[in-house]
Amino acid sequence: MKQNESYEEFIKGIWRDNPVFVQVLGMCPMLAVTNSAVNAIAMGMATFFVLVGSSFLVSSFRNWIPKQVRISCFIIIIATFVTVADYTLLALVPKVHKELGAFIPLIVANCMILGRQEAFSSRYPVRLAVMDAMGMASGFLLALFSLGAIREILGDGALFGIDLFGENFEPWIIMILPPGGFLTLGVILLFFNWFRFKKDEFLADVAAAERGGNG
């Protein structure tokens, strides 16, 4: 039972409540740094680290933080993790850090992270909070990666910098420019909503059939 519960918290972030495709949160990094798969993954990892770290701390201290100053405390915790991520990336992978530029410090302002602290971590025990954070962060990472991969393949003819189509491929440059982010995201959101719509329809059909069978 308990196992199921934390599994449920993890899995919901990846699909049912995916922070990007379903909740439509964290759009700035989503659109800004997904022009290549590597950038998208670096951003996703940094966000993963910040979200899981902050959720762990917020949940551990949830009974000590007075609710009048909770938002300030959340921001202090998140900002500290972001600074740690910023310097670590700068020291270990300076090239990626240069590409991501101002968007690493801006993880602080990612509404998904503060949203998880306020909605989940500050109300639930550590284990569930960490599972929830890991799920949400993985969902975010997955979303960034799919966008980054699609844009890099179409806009650059490559994936992870490896050429896929050879010389004759004419890159669809707009895909790695900002408008490409909006186009790709729009198409993916369309797919997600169509899928959900179909699923609801299917469930309704099943329910109707069962009612008919019983009656």
């Binding site: 007075p66 009048q68 100053v69 300030s72 405390c73 202090i76 900002a79 500290t80 310097y87």
Partner: peptide, 27 residues
């Protein structure tokens, strides 16, 4: 309230100084 924020700020400051000092030589 003041104490909570002060302690949070202090711990955060120490953490930031720590990461800055430890990554500075590499950078």
């Amino acid at each position: 309230l003041v104490l909570t924020l002060a302690i949070a700020g202090l711990i955060s400051g120490i953490a930031i100084i720590g990461i800055y000092e430890s990554t500075l030589p590499t950078i």
